[in-house]
Simulated assay, not measured.
Amino acid sequence: MAMTMNGEVQLPASREVVWAKLNDPEVLKACIPGCEELERSAENEFRATAKMKVGPVSARFKGRVTLSDFDPPTSYKISGEGEGGVAGFAKGGATVNLQDKDGGTLLVYNVDAQIGGKLAQLGQRLINGSAKKLADEFFTKFADAVKASA
């Protein structure tokens, strides 16, 4: 099952500050819902473990996250894939773009993802709702992290 999501978040900091936070593994680990582990495994690659619950399906996903297509402090692409055992798999990517706006930074994101296994059997509405909730939770925590350093 494929899904797409996009949105934007206004942040009260310069693009340089937001860029630094987007590239800080400790900030990302604290902001990713259910993230238990995020460790750098190569220059622009991380090993990740996250526990997720979508409807009645709960699983621990292990995978990797790669950052690419850098244009500091304006944009990059984040790609990832994870296996959750019998729950299935998830893989996808997001482009993140930063723009100066209203004395702060507008973060614009576009996500494409695919899921399979038991997760894909839950239905499009439940999956999309859960994905939006997870994205909202990430960006709320990320905005708080940016505000804390502003």
Rank of each mutant, 00 (worst) to 15 (best):
M3W: 03
M5L: 15
M5A: 10
N6R: 13
N6T: 15
N6I: 12
V9Y: 00
Q10P: 07
Q10W: 01
S14D: 01
S14N: 04
R15E: 12
V17D: 02
V18R: 01
W19I: 09
K21W: 08
K21R: 15
L22I: 14
D24C: 04
D24F: 02
P25T: 15
P25Q: 15
P25L: 12
V27P: 02
V27L: 03
K29Y: 05
K29G: 00
A30W: 10
A30M: 13
A30F: 02
G34Q: 11
G34C: 02
C35P: 14
C35D: 12
E36P: 01
E36S: 07
E36R: 13
L38Q: 06
E39T: 15
S41H: 06
N44K: 07
N44Y: 05
E45T: 12
E45P: 10
E45M: 13
F46Q: 11
F46K: 12
R47D: 15
A48Y: 11
T49K: 14
T49M: 04
K51H: 04
M52H: 08
M52Q: 14
V54W: 11
P56N: 08
V57R: 05
S58V: 15
R60P: 00
F61C: 09
G63C: 08
R64L: 02
R64G: 07
R64A: 02
V65S: 04
T66C: 02
T66E: 06
T66I: 15
D69I: 10
D69Y: 00
F70C: 00
D71E: 13
D71A: 14
Y76K: 09
K77R: 09
I78L: 08
S79H: 06
S79I: 07
G80Y: 05
G80F: 06
G82D: 04
G84R: 08
G84I: 11
G84N: 12
G84V: 07
G85W: 06
A87P: 12
G88T: 12
G88A: 09
F89C: 04
A90L: 06
A90S: 11
K91A: 10
G92T: 13
T95Q: 04
V96F: 00
N97S: 03
L98G: 08
Q99V: 11
Q99T: 13
Q99M: 07
D100H: 05
D100N: 12
D100Q: 09
K101G: 02
K101T: 15
K101Y: 01
K101M: 08
K101W: 02
G103A: 07
T105V: 03
L106K: 14
Y109R: 05
Y109V: 12
Y109A: 03
N110T: 15
N110V: 12
D112K: 14
Q114G: 09
Q114N: 02
I115Q: 05
I115E: 06
G116N: 08
G117L: 02
K118I: 14
K118P: 09
L119E: 03
L119F: 10
A120G: 07
Q121W: 00
Q124L: 05
I127F: 00
I127D: 01
N128D: 02
G129Q: 13
S130Q: 13
L134A: 10
A135H: 01
D136C: 05
D136Q: 14
D136H: 10
F138G: 06
T140D: 12
T140A: 05
K141A: 15
K141C: 06
F142Q: 09
D144C: 01
A145H: 01
V146C: 03
V146M: 06
A148H: 09
A148T: 15
S149Y: 00
A150D: 05
